[in-house]
Design a protein around this nucleic acid. Structure first.
Lengths: 145, 145
DNA sequence: CTTGCTGTAACAGAAGCTGTTACAGCAAGC
DNA sequence: GCTTGCTGTAACAGCTTCTGTTACAGCAAG
């Protein structure tokens, strides 16, 4: 359990919402999503809260409350989801500042920052190439067997 | 401290070793590396141990012991280092298996595995394009100011 | 045999994630 | 207006990981 599964939870929720929408049910409660993901409703509400703040889903309060997609599934990319639930950079620099009397210690942080930025950018470009609609199609193809 | 700094520690160590080598000192102790990184020598030994298992550095025991690069710096890519110190996949799937009675729960794991694999591949391709020699050059350029 | 470093175990403190309980807030509809 | 059902969020426990640290056995050069 080294890596975290936040992206997985969020994508699962959105994919399930996309399928429900296709079937005519526009609004899902956190309880219904939690049943599919098999976790606690609060975990889902936390995740959908991130997605709401990013403008990917909308929420209705009161009786008949629940969540809906804010955009059609093919307009929600995995990068949108990643950016919404993973605010931290992929690689961390040193916890404590390295020795500035060493030439390497002096220059390595900005240098690494640039290499890390390029690497993360490559990841983001790839994530931007797939949408929730793609995940749903691929999921149904596998699940039908 | 969400992300971990293992890649940073390892690259810093290798970069410092590359500079020392260029200056004629072939062997460095974990204590000397730790002074530049400003951490405990055991942390360095753990990191260099990973790199040794991956064949990127060699170690000498006994009196006059220490570490050396196993290859010239331009032949050690950031992907080599990443692979050596980060065995875990970038994104985790669900902790507990999702609900298999739901079409999404049934197919989403293999589907996500494929999308995650593609994303990680993009990251690795980018990391493979830079070497320790590149990091050293960039570091010295910044540090000279 | 001395010496200096590696290799590794063991442990503490801090932090993050997941899962859970609890409860206030909100709005639709009777 | 009141009931009802859901959201939003705080608080907490258990688990895991990471960093930093101490301690000590093992190894090889001289």
């Amino acid at each position: 359990m080294a890596a975290n599964s936040r992206l997985t939870i969020a994508v699962h929720a959105l994919t399930w919402m996309a399928l429900s929408e296709r079937r005519g049910r526009q609004v899902l409660t956190s309880d219904q999503v939690a049943t599919s993901v098999r976790t606690n409703p609060v975990v889902i509400r936390r995740s959908l809260g991130d997605l709401r703040r990013a403008g990917l889903v909308t929420v209705r309060h009161g009786v008949g409350a629940g969540w809906s997609l804010a955009r059609p599934p093919h307009e929600i990319t995995l990068l949108d989801v990643y950016a919404a639930v993973e605010p931290e950079p992929l690689f961390a620099l040193h916890h404590s500042e390295p020795n500035l009397e060493c030439p390497v210690g002096r220059g390595i942080r900005p240098a690494l920052g640039r290499f890390y930025g390029d690497a993360e950018q490559a990841l983001r470009r790839q994530l931007a190439g797939a949408s929730i609609a793609d995940v749903l199609d691929e999921t149904l193809e596998t699940g039908h067997q």
